[in-house]
Amino acid sequence: MSIPVIDLKDVDVNNPECEATQKVVAELRKAAMHSGFFYVKNHSVPLQMIARQFALSKDLLALSDEVKQKYDVKNFFGFRGFDKLNGQQLDPYGKPDHKEGFYCGKNYPQDHRFAIAKYQNYGPNQWPEELPECEEICQEYIEAMYSLADYLMKLLALTLKLPADYFDASSQDPMGTLRMIRYPPTPEDEDGLTYGVGAHTDWGSVTILAQDQVGGLEVCMPDGTWVAAPPIEGTFVVNLGDMIPKWTNGLYHSNPHRVKNTFSKGQYRYSIPFFYEPDYHAVITPVLGTLQEGEQAKFEPCTVGEHLEQMYNRSYNKAAENAVA
Rank of each mutant, 00 (worst) to 15 (best):
S2L: 08
I3G: 09
I3P: 06
I6F: 06
D7K: 15
L8R: 11
K9G: 04
V13Q: 01
V13C: 06
P16I: 03
Q22P: 03
R29F: 03
A32K: 07
F37H: 11
H43V: 06
S44D: 15
Q48D: 15
M49T: 11
F54M: 00
L56H: 05
K58W: 14
L61W: 05
L63C: 00
D65E: 13
Q69F: 06
Y71N: 10
Y71E: 11
D72A: 11
F76L: 13
F76Y: 13
F79I: 02
F79G: 02
R80T: 09
R80V: 01
F82Y: 15
N86T: 12
G87V: 08
L90Q: 13
D91K: 09
P92W: 04
Y93S: 15
G94P: 05
D97I: 14
K99F: 05
E100R: 05
G101M: 01
F102E: 10
Y103T: 10
C104T: 10
K106D: 08
Y108T: 10
I116K: 12
A117C: 04
A117D: 08
Y119S: 13
Q120P: 06
N121R: 04
N125T: 02
W127A: 07
P128T: 09
E130I: 03
P132R: 04
P132V: 08
E133D: 14
C134E: 12
E135R: 15
E136Q: 13
I137H: 04
Y141F: 12
I142D: 13
E143S: 11
L148D: 04
A149C: 06
A149M: 00
D150N: 14
L152G: 03
L155V: 07
A157S: 15
A157Y: 13
L160M: 14
L162K: 05
D168L: 11
D168W: 13
A169W: 12
A169K: 15
Q172S: 11
Q172L: 11
I181Y: 05
P184M: 02
P184A: 02
P187W: 01
P187G: 07
E188R: 10
E188M: 09
D189L: 01
E190D: 15
E190K: 00
Y195R: 03
Y195S: 08
G196V: 06
V197S: 09
A199D: 09
D202I: 02
W203L: 12
S205V: 07
T207I: 15
V214Q: 04
G215D: 15
L217I: 11
E218H: 07
P222Y: 00
P222H: 06
W226G: 14
A228S: 14
A229P: 00
I232A: 09
T235C: 13
N239Y: 02
G241A: 07
G241V: 00
K246F: 12
K246A: 14
K246D: 05
Y252S: 10
V259Y: 08
K260N: 10
N261L: 08
F263M: 00
G266F: 09
G266N: 10
I272Q: 03
Y276K: 00
Y280I: 00
V283D: 00
G289M: 09
G289V: 10
T290A: 05
T290V: 12
Q296Y: 07
A297L: 10
F299N: 04
E300C: 09
E300T: 11
P301K: 06
C302H: 05
V304G: 03
E306A: 05
H307K: 09
L308R: 03
Y312W: 11
R314G: 05
R314N: 08
S315Y: 07
A323E: 14
V324T: 08
V324P: 01
